[in-house]
Design a protein around this nucleic acid. Structure first.
Length: 635
RNA sequence: GCCGCCGUAGCAUAGCCUGGUUUUAUGCAGCGGUUUCGUAAACCGCAGAUCGUGGGUUCAAAUCCCACCGGCGGCUCCA
């Protein structure tokens, strides 16, 4: 009997009989594996267990406890969802129903949208279907027959999909429901132990704005009820951290209808937090040779014509006309920094030149995409531009990367993922420029011994870039920094330096932002810390509370001493019980509550309670020393 | 921008579907008083809302209809 060779995920080579199926491979590897197997991944594609494996394939057995296993389950659940909807509203037309990161969805074309009530009924119907324990049966049809099959049913979207396919078309049948599908699926519906519909929303057919809008239902599914409960808990936890909710509770910021959508009003407490972030960043920039600049919010349209924004970004900009002169509000700070660079000639000896600015920019974002601090129309970037020679590029990139990592660490973001994006289809600059720049980025990352992923073709048209994603305290990923090489603007603005050869050379420009938008970053910080900011960032660091009115004077003295030492302290002399005042401070998530009464006044001490409820009595002087250290260390 | 849901005191909610006691109820916060208190809620009282804005239907609109503004969940976009 002829044998064929397969490669397993660990790199080992397995020999199996010719014509073996996925399940045979699993059996050969181990009986337990065969029992848990749910599908097989062949050359990166999920396939059913009885898929016939060809010579030299890379094979991975997909078990239920793996990520891919969940995908199979969820995709199967989406079929059950479609089946339920079809039973309740037979005239509904089907879109597609894939599994996604946290669950699955299915798109439907229907006159009326789904209401929350509908969602409940659909979920009930799904449970009914699951209980019937239908088998997922695979069928194959010739393309023409499949087209006819769907044309008869009036499933225009499916017909459209089919027209792009070739060869034999596979279907999966679940009870009375048949769906065009490549598979793989679980064997029987009862394997879906837990399923929950989450929400509805509109979605364009094939994601294109010009197409019809379908109604999408989102849901999730698990192999056990316990996993679903875990999922719900995590979701609840994320909701508790919502920066919009905490921002209101802690009186940090607001958005005012009268001011306009996507425009943030920072309250005193929010500003205190924001200023700390800015102060810290400015210091760090100074240490690294950046020069802080300040530039206007408004520039003549000519600026944007030269930069190219006028042609390519106009829809996203705010324009106004005064004295017959057109002005554009800046969506970016780059042109201003280039103007400062160009105020005089630069020798190669002076490079690199680094300009830093907390630049407030305005971009018109479509109303539907705005949300809290995460997506706004006016925001402040921690923006800098580095002007250097080609030879300096790699070193400068390295420095920026290290800078970013340092900043992340201070804010407590330890897990960092790096992505390098290369030349997109539409781009400017020569092939040579791109190759060299990409290589500089790669080498910089390599020399720093950092792991990264390559996102092919995802660079900006004017140059390659490196993006950083960090994980917050509940493991959600956020994109923060971006480092971009730009071949475009130095050209457009004719920014040069004088080289050793005393000739003009085109300067290389790096755009970079570490936190990105301060608005967004503070939103992330709020969720990361759940409003319990470290001492140095806390809007109110200490609340001083007196035990009865006899000790108002001493409380006042302590408060003043703290303020004198640059702490953000608040005095609460109200005629409330100590318990009540502590409760208030705790709800405000203030790091330290200082309680003073008879004992403290007598010994010139303070009793300090931290957010965890631990308390100690120490001298005021020691307390100040202690928290000074804590602020300085920023931990 | 598109689809859907939503907008009632500073905040959180109820009332809206099925219009009708005098354009509204509750809790927290606020204010006034009493209490002077030792680590997450003392007691009593008071005040606070043109029910997002504008228009329409009706004898009558927080409630029904339309437009706009704003929020939320999606889609799309994020030179």
């Amino acid at each position: 009997m002829a044998e064929i060779e397969l490669t397993l995920p660990d790199g080992s080579v397995l020999k199996v009989k010719k014509g073996s199926k996925g399940i045979d491979v699993a059996k050969k590897i181990g009986s337990k594996l065969a029992k848990d197997a749910i599908a097989v991944e062949v050359n990166g594609e999920l396939e059913k267990l009885d898929y016939k494996i060809e010579e030299n394939s890379k094979v991975k057995i997909v078990t239920r406890d793996s990520k891919e296993g969940l995908e199979v389950l969820r995709h199967s659940a989406s079929h059950v969802l479609a089946c339920a909807v079809k039973e309740l509203w037979p005239k509904t037309k089907l879109g597609i129903g894939p599994s996604i990161e946290k669950g699955f969805y299915y798109d439907f074309f229907k006159k009326e949208p789904f209401s929350n009530e509908d969602l409940k009924n659909i979920e009930e119907k799904m449970h009914e279907i699951i209980k019937k324990n239908h088998e997922f049966k695979r069928k194959e049809m010739e393309k023409e027959k499949a087209v006819k099959f769907y044309e008869q049913k009036g499933e225009k979207f499916k017909v459209e999909l089919l027209k792009e396919m070739e060869g034999k078309i596979s279907f999966y049948e679940t009870g009375k429901f048949t769906d065009l599908c490549k598979g793989p699926h679980i064997k029987k519906t009862e394997e879906i132990k837990a399923v929950k519909l989450l929400s509805t929303g509109g979605a364009y057919w094939k994601g294109d704005e010009k197409n019809e809008m379908l109604y999408r239902i989102y849901g999730t599914a698990f192999f056990s009820q316990k996993d679903l409960e875990e999922f719900s808990k995590r979701k609840e936890e994320a909701e508790k951290r919502d920066h919009r909710k905490i921002g209101k509770e802690l009186d940090l910021f607001s958005i005012n209808e009268m001011a306009g959508a996507g425009l943030i009003l920072w309250h005193p407490k929010g500003s205190a937090l924001r200023n700390e972030v800015m102060k810290f960043e400015e210091q760090e920039h100074k240490k690294r040779g950046y020069e802080t600049v300040t530039t206007p919010h408004l520039f003549k349209a000519d600026t944007w014509k030269t930069s190219g924004h006028y042609n390519y970004y106009k829809e996203n900009m705010y324009f106004l006309e005064i004295d017959k002169q057109e002005y554009g509000v800046k969506p970016m700070n780059c042109p201003a920094h280039i103007m400062i660079y160009k105020r005089n000639q630069h020798s190669y000896r002076e490079l690199p030149k680094k300009f830093f600015e907390f630049g407030t920019v305005y971009r018109y974002e479509k109303s539907g995409v705005l949300g809290g601090l995460f997506r706004v129309r006016g925001f402040t970037q921690d923006d800098a531009h580095i002007f250097c020679t080609e030879e300096q590029l790699k070193e400068e990139i390295k420095k920026v990367i290290e800078f970013c990592l340092h900043i992340f660490k201070v804010f407590g973001f330890k897990d960092v993922a790096i992505k390098l994006s290369t030349k997109p289809e539409k781009s400017i600059g020569t092939e040579k420029q791109w190759t060299e720049a990409v290589n500089s980025l790669k080498e910089a990352l390599k020399e720093l011994d950092l792991k990264y992923e390559i996102d092919k073709g995802e660079g900006v048209f004017y140059g390659p870039k490196i993006d950083f994603k960090v994980k917050d305290s509940i493991n959600r990923e956020w994109q923060l920094s971006t480092i971009q090489v730009d071949f475009n603007l130095p050209e457009r603005f004719d920014a040069v330096y004088i080289g050793k050869d005393s000739k003009k050379h085109r300067v290389v420009m790096i755009h970079r932002a570490i936190l990105g938008s301060l608005e967004r970053f503070i939103g992330i910080l709020i969720e990361h810390f759940k409003g319990k900011f470290p001492l140095w960032l806390s809007p109110v660091q200490i609340k001083v509370v007196n035990v009865g009115e006899k000790f108002e004077e001493y409380a006042e003295k302590v408060h003043q001493e703290l303020e004198k030492n640059d702490f953000r302290s608040e005095l609460n002399l109200r005629s409330e019980t100590v318990s009540y005042k502590i409760r208030e401070a705790q709800l405000e998530k203030i790091p330290f509550v200082v309680v003073v009464g008879e004992r403290e006044e007598k010994n010139q001490t303070v009793t300090v309670r931290n957010r965890q409820g631990k308390q100690e009595t120490i001298s005021l002087k020691d307390f100040i020393e202690k928290i000074k250290k804590e602020v300085k260390e920023r931990n």
